[in-house]
Design a protein around this nucleic acid. Sequence first.
DNA 1: TCGGCACCTGGGAGCGCTCCCAGAATCCGC
DNA 2: GCGGATTCTGGGAGCGCTCCCAGGTGCCGA
Lengths: 338, 338
Amino acid sequence: MTERTRRPGPRIEEVARVAGVSKSTVSRVINGEKYVSERSRQSVHRAIALLGYSPNHAARTLAGSKANAIALVISEQGSRVLADPFFAGVLRGVHAELAGRHVQLLLMMNQPLDGQDQVAYLTGGHVDGALVVSLHGEDPLPRTLHEAGLPIVVGGRPLAGGTVPFVDSDNFNGSLEAVRFLVSLGREKIATIAGPRDMAVGMDRLSGWRCGLAEHGMAVSLVVHSDFTPEAGALAMEELLRRAPDLDAVFVAADIMALGALRVLQARGYRIPTDVAVVGFDDSVLASTAVPPLTTVRQDLEQFGRTMTWRLLAELAGEEKLPLSMLLPTSLVRRSSA
Amino acid sequence: MTERTRRPGPRIEEVARVAGVSKSTVSRVINGEKYVSERSRQSVHRAIALLGYSPNHAARTLAGSKANAIALVISEQGSRVLADPFFAGVLRGVHAELAGRHVQLLLMMNQPLDGQDQVAYLTGGHVDGALVVSLHGEDPLPRTLHEAGLPIVVGGRPLAGGTVPFVDSDNFNGSLEAVRFLVSLGREKIATIAGPRDMAVGMDRLSGWRCGLAEHGMAVSLVVHSDFTPEAGALAMEELLRRAPDLDAVFVAADIMALGALRVLQARGYRIPTDVAVVGFDDSVLASTAVPPLTTVRQDLEQFGRTMTWRLLAELAGEEKLPLSMLLPTSLVRRSSA
DNA sequence: TCGGCACCTGGGAGCGCTCCCAGAATCCGC
DNA sequence: GCGGATTCTGGGAGCGCTCCCAGGTGCCGA
């Protein structure tokens, strides 16, 4: 006797009836198409407000040619330490940019086991496009998806290069500015703790350091590669001090490594910044709470997320002549460590 | 002339044909219903694998009585500093628990502007349930959703109490253990920097401290409330030292505040842990990189996320006699600060 | 022998939209 | 005035599933 349970809320049909038009017209209004009279548009809007109508996502997706959803894919190949605050900031930006549009945000993490499935899912029409946050430069996922024809935007420059659209902080110029600042302070023996060679973010920051030193004819030999952990940063600092006990500045490619470096320097009796000036990168929470507070290069993660999303939505909207990739400005934040 | 574009991939009809059964039977196999012969089940599975079939989410949702999706709602009322690493850890757990099931994870952030819309969306049949991560104890959202009949699990005990299912770390016992540890070290004047009064996490950790002291007949007057920032932690520490310059231990309700406290203590010339023992809470990255490395109470955030998800899915599956709320064990991590 | 029940199966309506098509109304220049 | 473009509108097929219903089969106890 009981009717089959239905989802709550009014249907488009009901809106049409109240507005005194056909459901085709209501659909046109909802989707912002042209060829709708102002009169119809008004009355549809009124009806929607009156009934509290909200379109059924599943039905739109099924009937239409788009999924009304994008995926945020976190491609996790190690280095989760770096990823944590990075990720939260970016996410905030993504969400802000999506606000008000009828686009669902699906979250996927790239776990080793389901790489296959994931590609199938993403390219299977369940989403219109994807934001791929991939800190590991040689991750094949972005390329795979892109070649499968799925519109994507990668967060962080892919090492492989090629034609995949990406957004990244301007790591090169950020580092360059940091080094120029150290030089302006009169520092003459400027070392660096660089990121891993297989991550673009590591290489770009290293290039900036190199370039900054080269500008002033300074030697570019004091490099130690490390990964993005405080422990590795400490080891790298020890190595640098072994090679050059008289260095007077170090540019560390991530705040989290700088913490380790700071600890080693202090343990060895170096005064900061008097004896050794330290500059980090990221301006994470860690930077302001370090002792002494860390001078660092700030990247705006929320802007990062917004830009990725904007770029993807623009492509989905059919906009042309979009820039393939975009670099976001960084800025030096002066605190006490340099 | 061109056919209307269709999504790629095979349909259920095709699977049925290849398997030599009807689409009803294929549907039954996919949904794990009973009353399917072993023979049919096998051949359907073979056909699915052969064709690389993956069910269309929109169609399932439209036709069926459930949405096959859950929402992760980040209810952001300030205190984002605490939220960042917390959130990333929980998310990992949620995702891990969801792996392999055909349930989409939708992400929503609770921005002030769209509170109304959000409730409408969530209760409008777009999702089967929601995980609400809400650190702010008096957030009305959980209650609103719950009263609207949407199955939810809240991350973090709601202050209002009531009958909303939640998962939380066992903040009380974690703090209790920390204090007992300090007592076992022979400390006699144990202060605390507590969290805000309007957050359950703050109050529970404070209760643990109180209880631990009361067990040994010690005074429970050395309390300063603070918020979850290093700056506020520093101010709180200064206040404590003003009131009791001779304190010999401080239990800080969050690592991030402990950093500020540490800085103040060191600036005042207190040796850690010789003069003052410091114990934090959370075991975030901050703890291991602090100088000295922080003894702290560890909460397993991934487990936190897994448990929330498990609880929600179990409820959706119609399981009965589920515990209303669940507290997850914490453990003391001994480092150098105490 | 025969109902009754558990097990298994296929057919087909219909979920709530979008989008194609056909056609009506209006406007323009010649 | 008239053909054509442009603007607007409604009707209805169909997206890919789920779930109800009707019905078939085999096994049991009466």
